[in-house]
Design a protein around this nucleic acid. Sequence first.
DNA 1: CTCAATTAAATTGGGCACTAACAGATCGAC
DNA 2: GTCGATCTGTTAGTGCCCAATTTAATTGAG
Lengths: 155, 155
Amino acid sequence: MDRTAAEPAEGSLLLDDQLCFALYAASRAVTARYRPLLDELGLTYPQYLVMLVLWDQDSVSVRELGAALQLESSTLSPLLKRLEAGGLVTRERRPDDERSVAIRLTEDGARLRDRARAVPVAIGDAMGLTPEQDAMAKRLLRLLTVNVSDGGSGG
Amino acid sequence: MDRTAAEPAEGSLLLDDQLCFALYAASRAVTARYRPLLDELGLTYPQYLVMLVLWDQDSVSVRELGAALQLESSTLSPLLKRLEAGGLVTRERRPDDERSVAIRLTEDGARLRDRARAVPVAIGDAMGLTPEQDAMAKRLLRLLTVNVSDGGSGG
DNA sequence: CTCAATTAAATTGGGCACTAACAGATCGAC
DNA sequence: GTCGATCTGTTAGTGCCCAATTTAATTGAG
């Protein structure tokens, strides 16, 4: 079995031994790759993620968006105002609970979906992973996210 | 319906089909997990990454740091000024090439290394991946980073 | 029921990070 | 000495998190 590198020591402080750095670098590289594609749609990367949720399920509250994207409302509020200013969504208080704000697509926002369809195809192509590698990466990243989020220190 | 194992459609716009979202969420979750540990060291997460480089190799230029961390000088300059203000590093022009700025650890900065040793251990524990999963994740993330950075559209 | 306290949802403000675009200084070649 | 290239720093805009505030709904004591 050929192994790319030796097993790093348990408490290594070398940058290249850190999974966290590989994760951080990959995340920024992917976001950078999205940028020119999303520029054409007039979206930033987090805005694109919000639109993905709305294209799947229209009329969600800020709180529900935060739950889906694991983002705080203090991140979403200004972001949603920019989407509203761009004419892609509307924001209005829910009549039955005026603490909540319902986010809905405008016609422009709904129309953008067709143009956005090319984006994940192009990115998937650029990522250059086999379907098996893609599935494995998603599985590992979700496991990591769950473990790290749950305050669990269990191995 | 259960589509956890199903192969997502090529051009799916569902949030949960996107590897990019799994990556983005994992990256933020890991950073959040680091926060309380790094708070005790008086470091932010990117500052910690810079310190990892310096603990391995003292006296590096801004350019070299940028190459190691894949960050621009416009990110590093203010970050390094904060580290300098915190008394962890010094910045001075290189005598042989006064365009370059040499970043060096102060005694406090060097001393911090011992306290930092517990950090990757705690994080590794929280991540809860087996050594095989950890190695696989790093391998996939690096492959992803290279593919996505190289402008390659190859599959 | 009425009023105060508590909880919930969203917003606002401040600090750090990231990017793109630009400005200053220095080096090397000529 | 001039010119192009290199290295660093600065500025403006967005995103992210934390802490504090505002507004609305709920709960509890009388």
